[in-house]
Amino acid sequence: VTLFVASYDYEARTEDDLSFHKGEKFQILNSSEGDWWEARSLTTGETGYIPSNYVAPV
């Protein structure tokens, strides 16, 4: 399981994006799509795309 933590807050801009807060942890589901990764929030359980430059490895 690949875990990352949010370095910043992010507000979703499309329905496919995932909003999150600094400190929130994610399981990365797919990182092969470039700068936007499909992730599941371990806080909310929601799945969506997050900007990879807003998160760091745990």
Score class of each variant (00 low, 15 high):
residue 30 N to W: 07
residue 18 L to P: 00
residue 39 A to K: 00
residue 30 N to Q: 08
residue 48 G to D: 00
residue 19 S to Q: 04
residue 4 F to T: 04
residue 36 W to E: 04
residue 49 Y to I: 09
residue 45 G to A: 04
residue 10 Y to L: 02
residue 11 E to I: 13
residue 36 W to F: 10
residue 57 P to W: 05
residue 36 W to V: 07
residue 24 E to S: 04
residue 45 G to N: 07
residue 18 L to H: 01
residue 50 I to T: 01
residue 2 T to M: 12
residue 15 E to A: 13
residue 49 Y to G: 03
residue 53 N to G: 12
residue 21 H to M: 11
residue 12 A to Q: 06
residue 46 E to T: 07
residue 12 A to E: 02
residue 26 F to K: 01
residue 43 T to N: 09
residue 24 E to P: 01
residue 47 T to G: 03
residue 23 G to S: 03
residue 54 Y to S: 12
residue 53 N to H: 12
residue 30 N to S: 10
residue 8 Y to C: 15
residue 5 V to P: 03
residue 33 E to L: 13
residue 17 D to A: 15
residue 26 F to C: 04
residue 35 D to A: 09
residue 12 A to R: 07
residue 38 E to D: 04
residue 55 V to W: 03
residue 27 Q to M: 12
residue 30 N to M: 07
residue 3 L to C: 13
residue 51 P to Q: 05
residue 36 W to I: 07
residue 48 G to C: 04
residue 20 F to C: 00
residue 22 K to F: 06
residue 40 R to A: 05
residue 2 T to W: 10
residue 26 F to L: 08
residue 19 S to T: 09
residue 21 H to E: 08
residue 10 Y to H: 05
residue 36 W to P: 04
residue 30 N to V: 08
residue 25 K to N: 07
residue 25 K to W: 14
residue 23 G to I: 00
residue 40 R to D: 00
residue 10 Y to V: 02
residue 4 F to Y: 15
residue 11 E to S: 09
residue 9 D to V: 00
residue 1 V to Q: 13
residue 25 K to L: 15
residue 57 P to V: 08
residue 56 A to H: 14
residue 50 I to D: 01
residue 51 P to H: 08
residue 46 E to H: 11
residue 58 V to M: 11
residue 32 S to W: 09
residue 46 E to W: 08
residue 19 S to Y: 02
residue 57 P to E: 08
residue 37 W to M: 06
residue 14 T to V: 06
residue 53 N to A: 14
residue 15 E to Q: 12
residue 57 P to K: 08
residue 9 D to T: 05
residue 5 V to C: 08
residue 53 N to K: 13
residue 33 E to Q: 14
residue 19 S to K: 04
residue 41 S to R: 11
residue 42 L to S: 03
residue 4 F to V: 12
residue 26 F to R: 00
residue 30 N to H: 08
residue 37 W to S: 02
residue 28 I to D: 00
residue 13 R to K: 12
residue 27 Q to H: 11
residue 20 F to N: 00
residue 29 L to W: 05
residue 54 Y to M: 13
residue 55 V to E: 03
residue 23 G to K: 02
residue 42 L to M: 11
residue 17 D to I: 11
residue 9 D to Y: 04
residue 39 A to Q: 00
residue 28 I to C: 04
residue 41 S to P: 00
